[in-house]
């Protein structure tokens, strides 16, 4: 097998095995209801994680997405409460702001040659601060259009529902996979992850690509914010704290190297499912504290980091003996 698929395969195997274990204990986990809920509950995280996958593939990091999600939620709540603007128009405004926000961070990272970590850390505080400027309270969104959107779903056999936001996440993953593997931009993202200097020598438009990567991450964080406000029907400045770390976790568990250049958007989807599965299992069990989610995910992360090291080591020595 092509060794580049090894981490992805390992992720899928682990997911299937753990799913089978869960089903063996609680057969109900196999129902379409559970699957539908799993998609709905993790929709905002999944959408943000697609953006994070591109950023990490390029060798960067985006710490601002949790704050952008909160900002978008508060922005929507404030706009819808205080003005007569239709939610669809408000969505478009929120997406535009989030995209520009990402693009500016990308431009700073490229032109000022600053580490992505520090630039997006600043972006994280800035976006969170802007959310507080708009409102410090949790504002409920009571617009009837929200009700309409939340009522949209596709009914699966067995009673499960693919809600609008769950479906949206699947769509975003589909488009993400297409962009990553079937566009020149996608290859350029991998190229940056392989080495910026070399990529530049080979003619990759490094500046444009960097800006587009962070703009894409901003756009998807904005979309994730809209989904989150649909999911919670509220906007709150303190919401979605640490979501960027959950997204990074999903990306890494999905088999993407944190150093960039290697991984798959599809792997991130499996990463989201694994995290969701652990949560579902703990809910089913009922007696376990929710902290077990964190503990299990922490252990999984360790296992994956070790596994990636192992794979890198094996493929190196394989080449030496080739």
């Amino acid at each position: 097998m092509n060794p580049k698929y090894l981490p992805l395969t390992a992720t899928i195997v682990i997911f299937v095995l753990s799913y089978a274990l869960c089903v063996a204990q609680y057969p109900n986990i196999l129902s379409t209801r559970v699957i539908g809920n799993l998609l709905t509950d993790n929709a905002f995280l999944g959408i943000a994680a697609v953006g994070m996958t591109f950023v990490i593939l390029s060798g960067g990091i985006d710490l601002s997405i949790g704050s952008v999600i909160a900002f978008t939620g508060v922005f929507l709540a404030v706009v819808l409460e205080n003005t007569g603007i239709h939610p669809l128009v408000a969505f478009a405004m929120a997406l535009l702001i989030a995209t520009l926000f990402g693009a500016v961070m990308g431009a700073i990272i490229h032109y000022l040659e600053m580490p992505a970590f520090i630039v997006t850390l600043a972006g994280m505080f800035l976006a969170r601060g802007m959310a507080f400027v708009l409102s410090i309270d949790s504002i409920a969104i009571k617009h009837p259009f929200y009700g309409t959107l939340k009522g949209l779903y596709y009914k699966l056999p067995g009673g499960g529902r693919i809600t609008l936001i769950g479906g949206l996440m699947l769509l975003v993953f589909g488009i993400g996979i297409l962009i990553a593997h079937r566009t020149r931009f996608g290859t350029d993202v991998y190229a940056l992850g392989g080495g910026t200097a070399t990529a530049k020598l080979m003619g990759v438009p490094v500046g444009r690509t960097t800006i587009m990567i962070y703009a894409l991450s901003g756009l998807l964080a904005g979309l994730s914010g809209i989904v989150f406000s649909l999911y919670t029907s509220a906007g709150y400045s303190l919401a979605a704290v640490g979501v960027e770390l959950d997204a990074i976790t999903a990306v890494v568990i999905g088999g993407t190297l944190l150093t960039g250049g290697s991984g798959f958007v599809a792997g991130t989807f499996i990463g989201i499912l694994i995290q969701g599965l652990i949560q579902t299992y703990i809910t089913f069990d009922g007696s376990l504290s929710s902290w077990w989610t964190k503990i299990l995910i922490g252990l999984l992360l360790f296992v994956f980091i070790l596994m990636q090291k192992g794979i890198v080591y094996v493929s190196r020595s394989e080449r030496r003996h080739a």
Binding site: L178, H181, R182, T183, R184, G186, T187, D188, Y190, A191, G193, G194, G195, T198, A199, L201, M202, G203, V204, G261, S262
Partner: peptide, 27 residues
Amino acid sequence: VNLLPNLTVAENLFLGRQPRRFGFVDV
């Protein structure tokens, strides 16, 4: 070697000038 080790051999050869069909890279 000034090529990208993580890309495929084909991608390295055609980076920046990949053949496209309907706007998508024709792998």
